[in-house]
Amino acid sequence: MRKALPLIIAGLLAVLPLLGLSSYWMHILILVIMWSVIGMAWNLLGGYCGQVSFGHAAFFGVGAYTAGILYNKAHLSAWWGMPLSIVFVTIVALIIGYICLRLRGPFFALGTLAIGVILRVTAENLTGITEGDLGIMLQERTWIDKTWYFYIVLALAVVTFIAVKMIIESKLGYYFVAIREDQDAAESLGINTTLYKTVALSLSAVFTGLAGAFYMNYMGYIDPKIVFALHDISIVTIMVVMVGGVATYWGPFVGAIIMVFLAEIIRTIPKLGAAHHTFFGILLIVIIIFLPNGIVGDLPKLKKLLRIGKAA
């Protein structure tokens, strides 16, 4: 049963579009799956390897801009951005890794935060390449209907899930967790911590970048404030994983469902709609206090709490 769970969930998701869902619901589903991908990617670096990044928008944005610039300047299909983003995002990740991975703990987090902001400002000002704040718009999207976008992002999610699982159960996974638990001990056990942190960062960046390239194709419009956003990308990425469950396979998926729905629900509340960051902040505080391992990570604890709730 447990082993079949990923298959069952992927199967269920795959038949969902056949139900004839409205365009709005398809959009929500696509966002949930896209955020799961970003969450799983962040989890590799932040959850398993213990290097908390506050700058994943950097990779998301570079992925999105790879697709956008290819379309805008080279007049190629923006879909080429998906394979090509792997190259560009890896290069950016190696540079960021070289700068930031010598920093530990909170200093690494601050370093990545700064880099995310630097890339946003750069994209805003390199108007010759990125069109700056005007952004890049696809003259026409590949499909009007959302079904194919759904299957493409679902395929990306399945690949990411399998990749993460294979990585975590291999030598790499053990090395990542060893580095998270104690970098000095890991180093003295023969683990080249600098190398493996760079590997974790690059893998994490590539999957995030793929999600970014998909976003360009799907949404048809990007600008620096959207794809390099600190709040709406970098912080939400962390929240997806924190809420769902750090270093768990299903945490990012659960977190993505909650975060996307929460954002939608809050948006419909009159007057309070614009304050969704406030609600995210409150949610994060509650999660950190009561479920520090996230919903999936603290599932036994959560079940216990709910049972007490019923009895009382």
Binding site: K171, Y174, Y175, V177, A178, E181, D184, A186
Partner: peptide
Amino acid sequence: FQVVKPLQRMSVLDNVIASAFL
């Protein structure tokens, strides 16, 4: 290490597996 440095949130076996991978 004098001040022991176990990989805290890993099981004993996983701790040793991690180093056996060398």
